[in-house]
Design a protein around this nucleic acid. Structure first.
Length: 402
DNA sequence: TCTGGGGTCCTAGGACCC
DNA sequence: TCTGGGGTCCTAGGACCC
């Protein structure tokens, strides 16, 4: 029997998520190769993957591999509804859920032993509930660490359940190709291959200095830990994203200055709207450019105040676009993107409004600023401290505790 | 084979502050 | 006048993930 005190993390992953939702909602698509996407494959059903279709492949290439494939336009609303339903089942299983993407999450079920049984039973119940209640296949990996749980679910796909026995973790890990390590993509894999390293076990056997020399400090330390199955990261609840963005591919045709402004306007509108609906404000505006030869560039500007105001963001973007004008004229633009980072909670700033905001000069310590506020307005005036930035000073929103 | 759209994290240099 | 170490923030680029 599984020791209930030992850590148990589940990695739950929906199989070919978008494609599975389409097959669920349209019985005529079941058992057939389907491709979800517009121009590029966002998701392929297992029948299509069997022909070698991968994401992100363009449609022409995918259809060459899989001539019978059915093309389906994405229905993002349906996917986000399905995702919510699945996450409801997760939250009903344990409060310790960390969402990673629309179709993936970690669940810490360490403490559930007495209530719900060992992790393998919890996972089996989870899978059957998602199948019954949402109509989708869920693959689950179980291990003591996040990393290993994720590797396990990868091995278990599709529609599987894989438990990594705590006594055989290294035996499970060592023969795997280095690409299974989190953060190893094409570039890093090539660097490792160049020194003759192809399996996780070989990474584990490298001296850490040798590894750092090969792939860099942060990456080297991380891979060293993972290869030895050291992954202390806990399941974190309530993470908020740290940037919000949108981008648009433009194709090869030449665009006039006015056309670009129009496209930019649409992107800014979309991003600002999403910021407002998720109650966030941001300070740093980052624009992304891609040129005809597929080289890329980014330009950013940090505003004095966090905002979700379309016109403020648009002004900053216009300036950045202007700065890029000669490069765009020379190299041709194929993608325009925007993301806003340095995000803060908009509610906290809004809470400040009824009483106004106080700005403190550089170098004022938080404690003395709070003392100042107490002196002037009484201790009930202090609601929440929102933004503390060294160069900005800080703003202390005030709202009486109710 | 001409490559979408949404993100995260790391690196490295320069400005600036104490 | 020259020198320094430690730290944060901003900017640009790059690798990686789903």
């Amino acid at each position: 029997m599984f020791v209930s005190e030992s850590a148990a993390i589940l990695h739950a992953d929906l199989d070919s998520f978008y494609a599975s939702v389409e097959q669920r909602d349209d019985p005529t698509l079941r058992g057939k190769p389907i491709l979800v996407g517009g121009g590029v494959v966002l998701a392929a059903s297992y029948e299509a993957k069997a022909c070698g279709v991968r994401t992100p492949m363009n449609h022409r290439q995918a259809l060459r591999l899989c001539p019978d494939a059915i093309l389906v336009s994405p229905r993002m609303d349906a996917y986000s509804t399905a995702s919510k339903a699945v996450f409801d089942v997760f939250h009903d299983t344990t409060p310790l859920v960390e969402g990673i993407s629309i179709d993936e999450a970690f669940l810490d079920v360490s403490g559930l032993g007495r209530i719900a049984g060992p992790p393998s039973i919890v996972a089996a119940n989870l899978r059957s509930r998602v199948a019954d209640e949402v109509g989708l296949n869920l693959t689950v990996g179980i291990a003591r660490t996040k990393f290993l749980a994720k590797v396990a679910s990868g091995v278990g796909k599709p529609d599987g359940l894989v438990v990594v026995d705590p006594d055989h973790e290294l035996a499970f890990l060592r023969p795997l190709p280095v690409e299974r390590l989190w953060g190893v993509g094409q570039v890093t894999a090539a660097k490792l291959r160049a020194v003759g390293v192809e399996q996780v076990g070989q990474v584990a056997d490298m001296h850490i200095d040798e590894l750092i020399e090969c792939v860099g400090v942060a990456q080297g330390r991380k891979l060293h830990s993972l290869a030895h199955n050291r992954d202390p990261r806990p399941v974190v609840v309530g993470k908020r994203r740290s940037s919000i963005g949108s981008q648009r591919a433009l194709g090869r045709g030449k665009r006039s200055q006015a056309e670009l402004r129009g496209i930019l306007r649409g992107i800014v509108d979309r991003v600002a709207h999403r910021m407002r609906t998720s109650r966030r404000v941001g300070r740093t505006v980052v624009m992304r450019f891609r040129f005809n030869d597929f080289t890329r560039a980014t330009r950013s500007h940090t505003l004095p105040q966090a905002t979700d105001d379309t016109s403020v963001i648009l002004r900053a973007c216009d300036q950045l676009l202007d700065d890029m004008a000669s490069t765009i004229a020379a190299d041709g633009l194929t993608l325009l993107g925007l993301s806003i980072t340095n995000l803060h909670n908009a509610d906290a700033v809004q809470m400040a409004l009824p009483f106004g905001e106080l700005d403190f000069a550089d170098g004022t310590a938080l404690d003395s600023a709070l003392d100042d506020v107490r002196d002037r307005f009484g201790s009930a005036a202090i609601g929440r401290v929102t933004h503390v930035g060294k160069d900005m000073g800080m703003s202390v929103p005030m709202l009486p505790d109710e």
